[in-house]
C-alpha cells in the first residue's frame, strides 16, 4: 500500500511540473491575438497611404474599397458560392490524394520490394511542377471538375506518401521486437505497432498535403474554370478589378489557415501521447 501512495505522489509531482511549464510558455492576456498585431499595423498604414493618394487606386485599392467589394460579394452570394465550389473540389482531391498516398505509403513502407519497385518512379514524378500536369489532365479528363480534382489529388498525394513510407519503414526496431516476443504476426505488428507509431509523421504528411492542395487548386482554377476562388483571380485580372483579386487572395489565406489549424488540432489530439517539449497547434 505504501508503494501505491508513493507512486501516486510521484505522478502528481510530475503533473505539477508539466503544468507549471505550460503556464510559463503561455503569455498571460495574449495568446493567439499576438499574431494579429502585424496585419492590423499593415492595414492601418495601407489605409493611410491610400487616403493620402500615395498609391494608385487602380493598382492597389484602399482597404476600405476592398471591404466594400468583399461585402458586395457576400451580399450577392457570389463569394460563398465560389468558396463552396473551391472547397468542394479541394475536399474531393484531398480525400482522393490522401487515400492513394496512404495505400502507396503503406505498401512501400512495409514491403522493401515494393519500395524498390515504386519509389524511384514516384520520386521522379514528384519533381514535375504542378502546372505541367494541367494540359495533360485537361486532355484526359476534360475542362470541368475531374481534371481539377485529379490535379489536387496529385498535390496531396506526395507529402502523404513520403511521410507515411518514412514513418512505417522507420518504426523503432525495439518496439517491433516487443511485438515479436509476444508472438505478433506481420499484420498485427502493422496494426498494433507500426501504424500507431507512424501516426505523428503521417498526420504531418496529411497537413503538408492539404497545404499543397490549396496551392494546386489555385493553379487548377486559374487554368480554366468559370467559378471558384481561382476563377475570381483570373476574372479580376481580365476586368481590371484588383479589389476582387485581393478578396480572393484573402479568402485563400483565411481558408488555408483555418483548415490547417483544424487539422493541426485534430493531429495534436490524436498524438497527445507524444512526449514533446513544445506542443505546437500551428495556431
Amino acid at each position: 500500500m505504501a508503494e501505491h501512495s508513493v507512486t501516486a505522489a510521484a505522478l502528481t509531482a510530475r503533473h505539477q511540473t508539466a503544468g507549471s511549464a505550460a503556464s510559463v510558455r503561455r503569455l498571460p492576456g495574449f495568446g493567439w491575438s499576438v499574431g494579429l498585431i502585424v496585419p492590423i499595423m499593415v492595414l492601418l498604414l495601407w489605409q493611410l497611404a491610400a487616403g493620402g493618394a500615395w498609391i494608385e487606386a487602380d493598382l492597389l485599392p484602399s482597404p476600405a474599397t476592398i471591404a466594400q467589394t468583399f461585402w458586395a460579394m457576400v451580399q450577392d452570394g457570389s463569394l460563398a458560392n465560389d468558396i463552396l465550389v473551391t472547397v468542394y473540389r479541394l475536399a474531393l482531391g484531398f480525400v482522393l490524394g490522401t487515400a492513394a498516398g496512404t495505400v502507396a505509403g503503406l505498401l512501400t513502407g512495409a514491403l522493401p520490394l515494393a519500395r524498390r519497385l515504386l519509389d524511384p518512379t514516384l520520386q521522379a514524378l514528384r519533381s514535375v511542377p504542378s502546372l505541367a500536369w494541367v494540359p495533360l489532365f485537361i486532355l484526359w479528363f476534360g475542362i470541368y471538375d475531374t481534371s481539377k480534382v485529379i490535379l489536387i489529388a496529385v498535390g496531396v498525394f506526395f507529402p502523404v506518401y513520403l511521410n507515411l513510407m518514412a514513418a512505417i519503414a522507420g518504426v523503432d526496431r525495439k518496439l517491433i521486437e516487443v511485438g515479436r516476443v509476444h508472438d505478433y504476426g506481420k499484420l498485427r505488428l502493422m496494426l498494433r505497432i507500426q501504424l500507431p507509431a507512424a501516426m505523428p509523421l503521417y498526420l504531418t504528411g496529411i497537413r503538408g498535403g492539404l497545404g499543397l492542395g490549396w496551392m494546386f487548386i489555385a493553379s487548377a482554377e486559374m487554368m480554366g474554370a468559370n467559378n471558384g476562388l481561382g476563377f475570381i483571380l483570373t476574372n479580376g485580372e481580365e476586368i481590371g478589378r484588383p479589389d476582387q483579386i485581393i478578396v480572393a487572395i484573402l479568402a485563400f489565406a483565411v481558408l488555408g489557415k483555418s483548415t490547417d489549424w483544424l487539422l493541426a488540432r485534430t493531429a495534436e489530439r490524436l498524438t497527445d501521447w507524444q512526449d514533446k517539449l513544445h506542443p505546437e497547434t500551428g495556431a
Binding site: K174, E177, V178, R192, P196, A197, M199, W273, D275
Partner: peptide, 19 residues
C-alpha cells in the same frame, strides 16, 4: 519453447507510448 510461454523484459522499458 513457444513464444506464449516466455515473458521478456528488455534493458529499456520499450512501452508503446500511445497506450
Amino acid at each position: 519453447i513457444r513464444p506464449a510461454e516466455v515473458g521478456f523484459v528488455f534493458q529499456e522499458p520499450r512501452l508503446m507510448p500511445w497506450l
